[in-house]
């Protein structure tokens, strides 16, 4: 197992380089002229201003040259400077990535909990009302557009009933804690601000639910199918014949045997959550990577676009790596084989 993990780790830098190259090349095939993002319309007619801007942002150099410079800078943690915020992209990312991760992890927890529970119930009570209800819930979650659901829930829970806060990560008037991890829930706790912690948690509920619902559907379908298969196996009968109660039979014996495929789908749904986060963040004014990416794309902010792509790609690679390692650990046959 150690050798397998080592092999995967050695492959990582090459994969990252692949992502960097792809991200870089992608920006060269886009239609828009990045100059329009830098130079105002008035200055466009001024050749000197245009030339100066080109030199300032390195747009006068050849593509291979730009690529080499970019990769060189990258090695020292420099992702370039955003056309729009005029701040280092790395700094923007450092601020926004934790916000996205906090949202995505919360959504993952929500989606996994709901998904596994629904899947288990649907399998155990298959072809009954509970099963149909679970299927409807899953289908609804994965077919309804995230932004529509987000807006609808915001309207009902925040505007109409006022039981959940509006968009954002935290009360805008709040005295923010120092940024340590960038996770609002953790930083507020570290600063000992319990009230703010609950405020952050409260803000997290709706977007995490909206984003998590979609993956809950996928997870519940998969868990249901696997549970149906496992519940029919003879060792389930053995467990019952031992005198185990139904809860124990279902959770300890059946669910535990669906752990491997479940872990896999959870790991891979991370990618879905990352893309889903873009819309969710837009709806909930969540200052994360998603809304940053949207702004960057709108403004043809090339450094930001490349930066977001690379960071997203690396996060994706890492979750896949963790998923695969968890797979090996959870499956005794693979572990010993």
């Amino acid at each position: 197992m150690a050798r397998y993990i080592l092999r995967r780790l050695i492959a990582m830098p090459f994969l990252v380089l692949g992502i960097v190259t792809l991200a870089f090349l992608l920006t060269t095939v886009t239609k828009g002229d990045p100059l329009t993002a830098i130079v105002s319309d008035r200055q466009m007619n001024d050749p000197e201003a245009v030339a100066a801007a080109k030199a300032r942002w390195g747009l006068d150099r050849s593509l291979p040259e730009r690529y080499l410079i970019y990769v060189g800078n990258l090695l020292s943690g420099d992702l370039g400077t955003s056309f729009i915020t005029r701040r280092p992209v790395a700094q923007d990312v450092l601020f926004r990535l934790p916000a996205t991760l906090e949202l995505v992890i919360a959504a993952m927890l929500v989606g996994t909990t709901i998904g596994i529970t629904l899947g288990v119930l649907a399998a155990y009570f298959h072809n009954t009302g509970i099963d149909h209800l679970a299927r409807f819930f899953a289908l609804f979650g994965s077919s309804i557009p995230v932004f529509w659901l987000g807006l609808a829930l915001l309207y009902v829970f925040s505007v109409k009933w006022g039981i959940l806060p509006g968009p954002g990560r935290i009360d805008p008037r709040a005295d923010l804690p120092a940024m340590v991890t960038g996770f609002m829930t953790i930083d507020t706790l570290l600063a000992g601000k319990i009230r703010l912690f609950f405020d952050a948690l409260w803000h997290l509920i709706l977007p995490a639910f909206v984003l998590g619902w979609a993956v809950a559907g996928t997870i519940s379908r998969l868990v249901r199918a696997n549970m149906l298969e496992v519940l029919d196996r003879e060792f389930i009968l053995t467990a019952r014949a031992k005198g185990a109660g139904e809860f124990r039979v279902v959770v300890r014996h059946a669910l535990r045997n669906t752990l491997v495929p479940t872990l896999t789908v959870i790991g891979y749904s991370f990618a879905y959550l990352l893309t889903g986060a873009i819309l969710t963040e837009t709806v909930f004014s969540w200052p994360g990577m998603g809304s940053y990416a949207v702004d960057a794309a709108r403004g043809l902010d090339m450094p930001a676009i490349i930066g977001v792509t690379i960071v997203g790609g690396v996060v994706f690679l890492l979750t896949n790596l963790i998923t695969d390692i968890a797979y090996v650990i959870a499956n005794p046959r693979v572990r010993l084989g």
């Binding site: 003879e234 009968l237 053995t238 031992k242 005198g243 185990a244 045997n257 005794p332």
Partner: peptide
């Protein structure tokens, strides 16, 4: 619950296929 107290304690069972009657992950 009464039946459960008997099963595996006073009344035990073994099955046909030992390949599938044991839990593979325990």
């Amino acid at each position: 619950h009464e039946l459960r107290q008997l099963r595996g304690s006073r009344i035990a069972m073994i099955f046909q296929d030992p390949l599938s009657s044991l839990n593979p992950v325990m």
